[in-house]
C-alpha cells in the first residue's frame, strides 16, 4: 500500500542559525518502507530540485549504532515501542497524516544542522569514569571469576544501551540519568567493576551535572521511550551506589 504525507520538518542551517519548521509533501510512499527510507526519498527529490537535503543522523540502519535520533510526532524514535528511528516503518502512519519531525531538544545536545544534534556530552560522561581501569594485557583468565548468571544478565540488560539519547529527549527535564545509570549499573553488577564503583559513580554524576542535564524527577518517560528497554531500576541502583559512595 502507498500513502501520501505532509512532513513538518525542523530546518536549521547550523548551530548558530535560527531554525524554523518547513512543510514538505511526500507522495506515494510504500508502507513497507522504513521511516528513514521515506526521508531518503524526500532528500532525493530535494536534491533533484537543487535544494539542500534534510540533514539527519543515521548509520547502521539496523537499530544498534544509536546514531539515528528523530523526534517524531512527539516521541523520540516515533510512534512505536522499543525501536530506534531506523526500525520505524511507514505502516505505522496513516494516509494523509502530518508528521512533525524535530531534533532532540536539550541544552547539552546543541543542534548541528536540521535534525542533527551534538551528543559529545555522552562521550564526556563515559570519559569521566564509564570504564574498568585496566590496561591491555596482564588480566586473569576469563573463567577465573565466576559471575552469577542473574547478575551477568542484568549487567547485559544495562549494557545494551546504545547511547542514542532518547531518554534525554523524552525526559521533560532533559535528564541523562537513564544513560548514566545504565553504565554505572553494568559495572556495579560485575566484580570487575566493583573495585572502583564509588569513584565511578561520583565522577560520572558530577560530569552529568556539570554538562547541564536536568534532574531526574522519576517520571519514567525515559524507560517508556528507550529503544532498548533499559529499566529505571538502573537509576535506583545508581542512586543507591551514589549514596553508599557519599556516606562511606
Amino acid at each position: 500500500m502507498n500513502i501520501n504525507l505532509t512532513l513538518k520538518i525542523w530546518r536549521q542551517a547550523n548551530q548558530d542559525a535560527p531554525g524554523k519548521f518547513v512543510d514538505y509533501p511526500v507522495e506515494n510512499i510504500s508502507t513497507e518502507a522504513s521511516f528513514l527510507e521515506m526521508m531518503d526519498i524526500l532528500n532525493e527529490e530535494l536534491v533533484a530540485k537543487g535544494e539542500e537535503p534534510v540533514a539527519f543522523d543515521h548509520d547502521c540502519r539496523e537499530g544498534i549504532c544509536g546514531m539515528c535520533s528523530l523526534f517524531i510526532n512527539g516521541r523520540p524514535h516515533g510512534p512505536d515501542d522499543s525501536i530506534t528511528t531506523c526500525q520505524l516503518h511507514m505502516r505505522k502512519f496513516k494516509d494523509g497524516e502530518t508528521i512533525v519531525i524535530e531534533p532532540w531538544r536539550a541544552k547539552p545536545f546543541p543542534v548541528i544542522k536540521d535534525l542533527m544534534v551534538d551528543r559529545t556530552a555522552f562521550d564526556e560522561i563515559i570519559q569521566a569514569g564509564g570504564y574498568v581501569n585496566i590496561n591491555t594485557g596482564g588480566v586473569p583468565d576469563a573463567n577465573a571469576i565466576p559471575i552469577r548468571k542473574e547478575n551477568a544478565d542484568l549487567a547485559m540488560d544495562a549494557a545494551s544501551c546504545i547511547g542514542c539519547g532518547a531518554c534525554v529527549a523524552a525526559c521533560k527535564n532533559a535528564s541523562a540519568m537513564l544513560f548514566v545509570s545504565a553504565k554505572v549499573s553494568q559495572f556495579t553488577l560485575l566484580p570487575q567493576g566493583k573495585v572502583e564503583a564509588h569513584e565511578r559513580v561520583e565522577n560520572m554524576v558530577a560530569k552529568m551535572d556539570e554538562l547541564g542535564f536536568g534532574n531526574c524527577t522519576n517520571t519514567y518517560a525515559c524507560e517508556a521511550e528507550c529503544p532498548k528497554d533499559i529499566s529505571i531500576t538502573n537509576i535506583a541502583r545508581m542512586n543507591r551506589e551514589f549514596l553508599c559512595a557519599k556516606v562511606s
Partner: peptide, 11 residues
Amino acid sequence: DQCVAQGVPFA
C-alpha cells in the same frame, strides 16, 4: 580474557 576484565557481559 581482556574483554571479560573490561566488564564485557558475555553470556
